[in-house]
Structure formats: C-alpha cells, structure tokens
Design a binder for these strands. Structure first.
Length: 352
RNA sequence: GAGUUGUCCACAUC
C-alpha cells in the first residue's frame, strides 16, 4: 500500500487524474485495500481538476468498500464542489458529513466560507461565520477565516464590508497572514485607493507580518489602477528596503501595469531588467508584454516575444494566442492568424 | 502520504 500511495502522490502532483485512477485499479487488482488517506488524496485530485462527478463516484466507492471518510475527505469534497461553482453540492456534502456524525472543524467552516465566496454569496459566507461561532464548542475564526471573508467581500464588490472584516481581524488576537493583507490591498484596487493600500503596508509591518512577493505584487497592481506608474516602479525599491528580492511575481505585475497603461517601451525595459537579473519570466509575464506590444501595433515584436517564450522552454497558453489572434483581427492579418491558430492546435491548445 | 484564504496577463459576461 505504501508503494501505491507513493505512486498516487506522483500522479496527483503531476495533475494526472487518469494515472491516479489507474493506481487505484492496480492496487485493487493486487487484492490490496485503499485506506482513507488514499481515497482522500484521490478526492483532492478530482477537486483540483474540477471533476465533481468523479469525486462523488470515488466517495461512493469508498463507502462500498467500508472505508469511513474522515473530516479531511469531506473537506476535499466540499472544496471540489466549490471550485466547480456548485455551491448547493458543497453544502450537500457538508450535510452528508453531519449525518455521519463527523464533527466539522475550523478547516471545514473555512472551506464553506470560501465556497460561498466563489459563488458570490457574501451574506451566506457570514452566515457560516455565525454557525461556527455557535457550535456546541464554538470554533474561533483564524487567519484563514479572515482571509476568506475579506476575499469574499472583495469579490462581491463590497469593499466597505471587506474593510470592516479587516479591522476586526486587526482588533482580534488573530495574527493575519500575508494573504489577508494582500486580499485587502486587492480590494483597494477596485477603488483605486492607493493611499489606503500603502497604509495597509504600514499595518502589516506594525503587526509583525513578513510581506511576501505576492503582497508587493498586489500593491503594484493598485498603483497601476491609480495610473501611477512611477509609484508602481517605486514599490520595487520598498521591497528591496525590506530585504526582499523582486522576483518573477512582482515583475509580472509590473509588466501588466505597463501594458494596461500603454507603456510598451517601459514593458520592454522591464523585460530586459528581468533577463539581466536572470529571472525567468512566467507565461503571464510574456502575455502582458505581448499585449502591450500588440496594442502599440508592434506586432512583429510581439511575435518575437512568442518565440522567446518558446525558446525559454515555456508553453504558450490560450491567453497567449488570444492576444495575438486579436491583434491579427484588428490589423487584418488573416494569413498570420490562421497560421497562429494552426500552431496553437498543434500545440494542443483548445480554442474556447 | 490527505482537506481551507491572497496578486498579474487575452477574451467573454455584467
């Protein structure tokens, strides 16, 4: 069983669901019995791959084999339903859990809150918060709870409410994670509230939380939405002052800002800075650069960025080709469009 | 060996 479980881990890590299922078949063909963790790992893999039906099939099989699902199993199920945008099913899984007398823990409640968040059911997320507090043995919100709630409000466009949650987090004894601060900064970006976002940066330091790259990336994005490209670039210096090296994550955001503001030459400069720092751009970095170039009618440069992308050993994605195809459309380059389209197909990219 | 929160890039939707 240990060996098959290791094999399963490998498949799940590679996001190879079919392989993962084969491991189950193999294991059974050898007369072995999968245990709860094994099934839960499978359920989690389905969850990440968005395969809800398969997820329930595995759950069913688990029951057939008399393996009792644990709170982890239900957590993975609820999350899988949520990722697939199936809020009723998520609560359905929760109901099954209760009926089996499995006690919901904090992770379960956090998962439910996140499920509501993804479905845009902000009020319901707060209902879950009340539910957890009024359990027989009350479950206290933690940093994940706060992060999920802030994100729920931000997604629902309820920035004021997000701020309330954020403030109550800071008033509580719960120490926020960088995610919570990033979420509130992101909420600011909707309103172009650069000043408040920078205040959050001060809070974070006051609160003794170590900012990470994603946090700075969010700050850069807010500066971009406030159309302040100088501020966006200056965030890099703040990072360095905090002893954090700018990496591909922040450069990717910066590239996005340049692109949104039509600054294609600055975008190219960012690209050069990245290469001289020996940072590997991500696909989204390349996409942002191609967008900037296409909007500036620098189509040939955009094409050479595409070949850089491939040369770096990365795979262009659906977005990469959408950007270029749209540029072809605007400039009447039908032949090039067809060629790109055929390339995309050959590379296994499905049109949406 | 298993479950939960954060950023950026095209399009579409509102």
């Amino acid at each position: 069983l240990q060996h098959y479980t290791m094999l399963l881990s490998v498949c799940c890590h590679a996001r190879d669901i079919d392989g993962a299922l084969k491991v189950l078949t193999l294991l059974e063909s050898r007369g072995l019995k999968a245990d709860c963790m094994f099934y839960t790992t499978l359920v989690s893999a389905c969850s990440k791959a968005g395969k809800v039906d398969l997820l329930f099939q595995i759950f069913h099989e688990m029951e057939l084999h008399d393996v009792d699902p644990s709170v982890h199993t239900f957590g993975a199920m609820i999350d899988g339903c949520a990722r697939a945008g199936q809020l009723p099913k998520a609560f359905g899984a929760y109901g099954i859990m209760i009926s089996k007398n499995v006690k919901p823990d904090r992770v379960i409640f956090n998962t439910l809150i996140n499920a509501c968040s993804r479905a845009g059911a902000v009020q319901r997320a707060f209902d879950v918060l009340e539910d957890m507090k009024s359990e027989a043995t009350p479950v206290k919100p933690d940093h994940v709870t706060y992060g999920a709630l802030i994100s729920a409000c931000a997604r629902g466009g309820e920035v004021e409410k997000a701020l309330e949650v954020y403030e109550s987090m800071r008033e509580s004894n719960v120490k926020g994670s960088p995610e919570c601060y990033t979420a509130i900064v992101h909420a600011c970006s909707q309103k172009g509230e650069l000043d408040y976002a920078l205040t959050v940066y001060d809070h974070l330091k006051q609160d003794g939380v170590k900012p990470d790259e994603v946090f700075f990336s969010a700050l850069i994005d807010v500066a971009g939405h406030s159309k302040d490209i100088e501020k966006a670039f200056s965030i890099l210096n703040r990072m360095k002052n905090d002893g954090i090296k700018p990496g591909p994550v922040v450069y990717s955001s910066l590239m996005g800002v340049c692109s949104n503001l039509g600054e294609w030459e600055k975008a190219l400069r960012v690209y050069e800075v990245m290469s001289s720092a020996r940072l590997r751009p991500t696909v989204s970095t390349y996409n942002a650069l191609m967008t900037a170039l296409c909007e500036a009618k620098q189509f040939d440069k955009a094409l050479s960025v595409l070949s850089d992308l491939k040369g770096a050993g990365l795979k262009p994605n659906q977005i990469s080709y959408s950007i270029l195809l749209r540029a072809c459309e605007k400039e009447g380059k039908a032949d090039q469009a067809l060629e790109l389209y055929l390339n995309a197909r050959v590379e296994g990219i499905k049109p949406n």
